[in-house]
């Protein structure tokens, strides 16, 4: 395993957890409180769209059509608008993901340093295709634009953990580390 293959950063407010519950009730209990807190930070409801979507993904693991309709209702936006915004950000999953959502940066920097080999290795090891979830429900591999670590290519993010300097030969160890 090469240098730097370790969780570099863990997000303070994780948007992808290991435990995913697609049917979890949205905006109830503590999440209702958080929703109100988010709304209180902005002059109008539309402005709260990104944090609200982020919270919804945290609760359910992905942004489902139902989630979009519910968020649209709460923020008084059209479902088409909410989906437009959600589809722009790779961080928002518009399809249900496996237990481990593996995001590989294929931006220009990482790509020059072998990102495609990493992707290929991951797909081979997990037996999936891009965006698909493995049969055991564990892995989903997606390509993303930039993970803000261009000095440490290839960047990989697994749920909320970042991995730097990933090489194709690291893939096996990386997956093992997850279990």
């Amino acid at each position: 395993m090469s240098d730097g293959l370790h969780p570099a950063v863990v997000s303070a407010q994780p948007s992808q957890r290991d435990e995913k519950n697609p049917d979890a009730p949205l905006f109830e209990g503590e999440y209702q409180d958080r929703l109100e807190k988010i709304l209180s930070r902005y002059p109008f409801k539309r402005a709260a769209l990104l944090p609200v979507l982020n919270m919804a993904q945290q609760v359910r693991g992905w942004i489902s059509p139902d989630t979009i309709k519910r968020v649209a209702e709460i923020l008084e936006l059209s479902p088409a608008y909410v989906r437009s915004v959600a589809s722009f950000y790779t961080m928002f999953q518009l399809r249900p993901a496996g237990k481990y959502l593996i995001q590989v940066c294929t931006g220009i920097g990482c790509d020059l340093c072998g990102a495609e080999d990493v992707v290929e290795g991951l797909l081979k090891a997990t037996g999936t295709r891009i965006g698909e979830t493995s049969a055991d429900g564990k892995y989903t591999v997606v390509e993303v634009e930039c993970l803000a670590g261009c000095g440490f290519p290839t960047m990989v993010q697994i749920n909320d953990r970042m991995y730097e300097n990933v090489k194709a030969e690291d893939v096996e160890g990386l997956l093992k580390e997850l279990d």
Binding site: S78, A80, Y81, R83, S84, S87, F88
Partner: peptide, 9 residues
């Protein structure tokens, strides 16, 4: 009618 949006980037 608020039906049309954009998808992707």
């Amino acid at each position: 009618n608020d039906v049309i949006g954009r998808t992707g980037k």
